[in-house]
Simulated assay, not measured.
Amino acid sequence: MKEYKVFAINPGSTSTKIALFQGDVEVFSKNITHEAAELKQFREILDQLAYRKKSILEALQEANQSLTGTDAFVGRGGGLVSVVGGTYPVNDRILADQRNKVSVQHPAILGAQLAHEFVEEYGGQAFIVNPPDVDEFIDEARITGLKGLYRESKLHALNQKEVGIRYAKSLGKRYEEIDLIICHIGDGISVTAHRKGKMIDSNDIAQGDGPMAPTRCGALPVKDVVRMCFSGKFTEEEIYQKITKNGGLVDHLGTSDAREVGKRIAAGDGYAKLVYDAMIYQIAKQAGAMAAVLEGKVDGIVLTGGISYDPYVDAELKRKLQFIAPVTIMAGEFEMEALAAGALRVLTGEEEPKTYTGIPCWNGFHLG
């Protein structure tokens, strides 16, 4: 069987991660950092396209790596309407929807644009894999206590899906054959119910839901939040910052670094321990809720993300959750591997590619 050459591109706020794969073996990778001062010159995210491409080509040249003969260029994706999970060839609709800002703008949208640019120059095919826009919630998961306010899927789709696929393989099964709870524990925390290959429910990592995280507030008492909003002490933007960037460990302890929190706990900081234990408690509580979503039929619970390297977090979550199902640690993130693997599954015929149509897979309820 041919060993396909795949180039993965994962643009972030101040960096661009790149990796070159020969088959499923990573042969080169680099995290290209971008100075904030350099990025400030660009008014829109898409204005960074030529700059990021130049940075990538320079990094490859320095490492004596060539993109000649690459079979697939695969980017992170994003900035699209809601889609089901899978691998999508980059088409004109994807490029247009990102340019027309049909959804939230994040540097990840540059992944598809860069993949397209490289295909134009080097040939091959361009893909995105499980972009942030993946939404596979069941209808019951969307309803809230206020008509017209609905829950949508905002989670770590790329890593969640890859971890699910890898865990299933460890059991000698396919991802579509098992039911899982996957806890991605990083700067944001998503605890997700996976039923037969679909992420049917999870907490929202973007809008204030579920466990607090290093930088995010998690679920809050709504009436108290309303009082904050109308107190005159905070602007609208400051409230958003508290929810998504300055909440959680940052608000309580002044740091988002779990390692720093661990050092404080070891030095006898009782409040740091209380807050850290509360975060762990909330993760376990959310996982228990996802067990109910799966009606107790859980083949495994997987802990992933950067904080799952912490033995204390792992031990506490195992203690709290092992009565539900076996708990497995798959620490870190597998985003670059996930991008390459998604492209390879299509190239080898293991998986059928999805087609992006620009029509949301969910666009509200239209009931009487």
Rank of each mutant, 00 (worst) to 15 (best):
A278M: 04
E260M: 05
P11Q: 04
P214T: 02
F73Q: 13
K196P: 01
V83S: 03
I182K: 09
K17Y: 11
I18D: 00
T304Y: 11
G218W: 13
H116P: 06
E260D: 13
N91W: 08
D47Y: 10
D299M: 03
A341N: 11
L60A: 15
I307S: 08
F137S: 01
A291P: 04
A287C: 09
D92P: 01
V327T: 13
A96I: 01
E3P: 07
R195M: 04
F127W: 07
A8R: 01
V261Q: 10
R216Q: 07
G270A: 14
K30W: 06
K17Q: 11
Q113T: 11
M279Y: 12
H252T: 00
G332Y: 03
A112Y: 09
K53G: 02
I205Y: 07
G23N: 03
Q207M: 13
S153E: 07
A258P: 03
S82H: 12
Q160T: 14
G210L: 09
S55E: 04
L171F: 12
Q160H: 15
E162K: 07
I243E: 05
T328M: 01
G75C: 10
V226C: 13
A193V: 05
V27C: 04
F73W: 13
T70R: 10
A108R: 04
G364A: 05
T215F: 00
I182H: 12
K233E: 15
M1W: 00
Y271L: 11
Y240M: 09
Y4P: 03
E120R: 14
H252E: 08
Y122C: 08
L155E: 01
D257C: 04
V293M: 04
N203A: 14
V6K: 03
A315F: 06
E295M: 02
A108G: 15
E337R: 12
C361D: 07
T87E: 02
C217W: 01
P326C: 12
L20Q: 13
V102P: 05
V25C: 06
Q286R: 15
I185E: 12
I329W: 05
P107Y: 07
N31Y: 14
Y281A: 00
L95W: 05
P360G: 09
Y88A: 01
G270N: 08
L180A: 13
S153I: 04
V90I: 05
D269K: 09
H106D: 11
R99A: 14
G306S: 07
D179A: 05
